[in-house]
Design a protein around this nucleic acid. Structure first.
Lengths: 344, 344
DNA sequence: TTTAGCACTCAGCTTCATTGAGTGCTAAAG
DNA sequence: CTTTAGCACTCAATGAAGCTGAGTGCTAAA
């Protein structure tokens, strides 16, 4: 339906987008002539910009102001005009690589410091979803007797997560019997991913075991909680204050709404989840986001893997006036780095 | 040095504080006559207020405005005028009691949801320090072989924390040998608190064990990390947006500084730590706080215990214009509740 | 098709006067 | 000596009026 843009219009659109990204001020025809360096006069540019506005790529905040890109304009820029291979500079690379340098043991630490680095490099707010436990597969289950009445259930997945939980052993249990239960569980569960363990499977297991020994009611709580956990995936934030530096957020009310959003982990999760099915980097501009509260924002997301399993997503959130090519290149680098860190 | 206030001045100061807490507007002499209900005329009140200002309990934002309490004024109010026994109402009590109702297993969950409830009841921002691991004592150490090369170290404290970590076992190790090492460690460490385990003690242990079997280099990493952890205590925040609703934070720049503070966990920790030595509730008003960024705020803190050991602190942070008596009663209730939750 | 010229628009800033809440001071009343 | 009424004064806040400048749309000429 929309006619393809000719070369000149493309150049003008690009100039407007780049200028607006840099200055956050509406871009006038004179400014374009200066940046665009094609010997055209402002008047010509004005005509072209009027066209671009009619086509929906630009808008005017008021009659006597310059133009700013519309959501459609940004989309066109991202899809057709942007230099996709802008690589991030050495300082940034170094910062990104530093995330794991000091042998961070805990996966959570890696995630948190990634969020910090990513937000400070991009000057935007950054969200990282913690690893999705439910996509991991059982590796083994152990039960470690602590004292007469209590035991420690340890659950290990193929992606290296370890979960544990103290349970009450309701009656004395010989090591041999315990061993039997454990190997039965391992036999049944090994290789299944967490989200394949349905409540019905758990009930089946319970039936089998009750027949043999009437204990271990509590041992299953860990399993059941693991299932519930899918809704409890943590989302880590970095650089929440960065968004306040953007001129589009100088309004206290907008800030309030944004921060409110940041406190609702479930929403943050939804934001990231929407994009985490794709394997490559995804860009959502304005209303392309499903979550209403960020429809004035742009979100650039990628996913990270452990041993080739996609376990979580990383996103950079900012105003639609975002330096897309920079963010994309930084994010791509971060994702690569995370993948190699986590898989080793 | 400061003369004691007579009854009339006390009443007036109380009236000013209460009014200002409620309205956030400077309080004029007429308003005081209305609330104070002593048949005095505004002129008399004016004279008294002028006295109170000279004594430093009140200040005037500008010559033709009403008075607002100074930091000293709040302090006097809190120490001498406030009704200390205002109890929180049933709805609030119910909300507080709800924290643990659905059998929250993880201590972290309890802490996080406490922060949420406390902030929503007080309409302020709320900080809770996670339990201080270093104050716990060793209960036992276990090493659980996972496969040929790896083992899981499990560390259990008397307060019920469980920490674990996968380690590499550098050479094959018979269960018997492993058992020997573990019981030696238990023997040496049992009963010590985490912060009693110095680097020198660890080195001594290493020497002893190296003499016997030259392995387990890595087993000590968990110990060493536990020591480092003292600086890594997590502080949980609740209701960060509440502070934005306070009229004193309508300035974007103040908001920025505040949120910046909220991102610096180390500072938050320092804020809480300063007050967590005391056993009772502590109130710090304005410059009484050491941390510079909250010297326009008031902080009310309490501590929580597990089995009578003080392990962490809870604080409510807001503008100095805070409803102290309410916050105190709510916080007291929350602390009591936490104590009983965590010790069971 | 492009450009120069010109009238027009409109947000943002400054200036100025007005308003009203509240004060301090003084002199009279209790 | 204490309290009160009266009055002049101060000052933030509000809003109207006018100015400025960046930028536009349109038209006519190159």
């Amino acid at each position: 339906m929309t006619a393809p843009l000719n070369e000149r219009k493309k150049n003008i659109l690009r100039a407007v987008v780049l200028n607006y990204i840099k200055t956050a001020e509406p871009v006038g025809s004179r400014t374009v002539t200066r940046t665009c360096r094609t010997g055209l006069s402002p008047a010509t540019i004005r005509n072209e910009m009027a066209d671009l506005e009619e086509m929906g790529y630009l808008t005017q905040p008021h009659t006597s102001a310059g133009r700013i890109p519309s959501q459609k304009g940004y989309r066109y820029y991202v899809d057709n005009l942007m230099d996709p291979d802008e690589s991030c500079n050495d300082d940034e690379s170094a910062l990104i690589s530093s995330v794991n340098s000091e042998k961070m043991r805990e996966i959570e630490q890696i995630i948190v410091s990634s969020a910090k680095v990513l937000s400070s490099v991009t000057n935007q707010t950054c969200l990282i979803m913690g690893p999705q436990f439910k996509k991991s597969a059982f590796h083994q289950i152990r039960i470690l007797p602590l004292d007469e009445k209590r035991g420690l259930v340890v659950l290990i997945t193929d992606t290296g997560f370890i979960k544990n939980k103290v349970i009450d052993l309701q009656q004395n249990l010989s090591p041999g019997e315990l061993q039997q239960v454990v190997s039965y569980l391992n036999h049944k569960l090994c290789g299944l991913t967490i989200d394949q363990v349905t409540t019905s499977l758990i009930n089946e297991l319970k039936r089998d075991l009750f027949r043999r020994l009437e204990i271990l009611e509590q041992a299953f709580i860990l399993l059941e909680e693991s299932l519930k956990e899918e809704k409890q995936i943590r989302v880590f934030l970095g650089g929440t204050t960065n968004i306040l530096n953007q001129p589009e957020f100088k309004d206290v009310d907008k800030i309030r709404r944004m921060l409110n959003l940041f406190e609702q982990e479930a929403l943050l999760f939804k934001i990231l989840e929407d994009s985490s099915s794709e394997d490559d980097i995804v860009i959502r501009i304005g209303a392309e986001n499903e979550v209403a509260d960020i429809q004035e924002c742009a979100l650039v997301t990628g996913t990270y893997k452990i041993h080739d399993k996609t376990l979580g997503a990383v996103g950079v959130l900012g105003p639609t006036r975002m330096d897309y090519s920079r963010v994309i290149s930084v994010l791509r680098r971060m994702v690569d780095h995370l993948n190699s860190c986590l898989s080793s």
